[in-house]
Write a protein that binds this DNA or RNA. Structure first.
Lengths: 149, 149
DNA sequence: TTTAGTGCAAACTCTTTGCAGCTAA
DNA sequence: TTAGCTGCAAAGAGTTTGCACTAAA
């Protein structure tokens, strides 16, 4: 069903269909969690060796613009992308020990954000809320160096 | 007073003093708002032409490690740095129209964050909360393209 | 036949590193 | 005299762009 959204987006923009792009979209939408362009390329290439990194980047851009993907940076240089579930906004807990990412939703926080914005006569389009720290597993293992990349 | 913290940090690490670093630190601490390495270099060079970008980067790293600076990325590629005011954590409203950055503090939000963490048995070390949208001025001017960079 | 899509290599942006000379202690 | 500090140039990492070719419509 999400795919029809993209089809519509492609049509409305006068774009064409292509097997590489289809493959990237299909693979992306089947992913759980957060995927970087590089990681997605690896998955895509398992099915089709001919796809290049550039196409993955271009397709992710298209997906983001059409609202099917959400781009996130967390505390790193690389962008990661997550399939957008309509109407399901959420924020993240990021473990600096093992890199695990957990999701949460909290309406009360959102309400307070709106209140803050109102005080500043500011109109929120979107927000970023990321809680960094240590998950249960990592706190048990004791002090551990943050996972690189 | 903040400067004595850095002096202590430098001593404890067995580092040396240098006029370039002093100039960068001095300039940085006198800045309001958020400064990128490039912007800081421009300011520093007004007083001393001999300072290089590398030294600015290295000094900002030192300041961040010693707790005198806080690094922030917002929605851009570049890092910006802000002098850390001890015990004064705050979050940001970022206008996508003009790039203006406003600060706010909200204890209730922080309390709710701790509650979320507790539910997930997660231990927060720090968080990022950024509200993106349109400020009053920009909403008056009507639809305006987001300022690049 | 037209024009979007593709992969490759090159360019780009921001940041870090290697290095040889400089300088504080 | 011994390292840390410096600027420069080069290297890195992640992403975007230019280009000639391919292929959908």
């Amino acid at each position: 069903m999400e795919r029809s959204l993209l089809k519509h987006f492609i049509k409305s923009r006068g774009l064409r269909q292509s097997s590489q792009r289809d493959r990237v979209v299909e693979t992306f939408l089947s992913q759980k969690g957060h995927t970087s362009a590089e990681e997605l390329l690896i998955q895509v290439r398992k099915k089709d060796k001919r796809v290049g990194l550039t196409t993955v980047y271009r397709t992710l851009k298209l997906l983001t613009e059409s609202g099917l993907a959400v781009e996130r940076k967390f505390n790193r240089q690389v962008s990661t992308f997550e399939p957008a579930r309509i109407g399901q906004h959420h924020d993240h807990l990021i473990c600096l020990g093992c890199g695990k990412i957990m999701e949460f939703e909290n309406k009360n926080i959102e309400t307070l954000q709106e209140e803050v914005a109102r005080k500043h006569t500011f109109f929120i389009t979107h927000h970023v809320l990321e809680l960094y720290g240590t998950c249960l597993d990592c706190s048990k293992k004791g002090a551990k160096k943050p996972k690189k990349k």
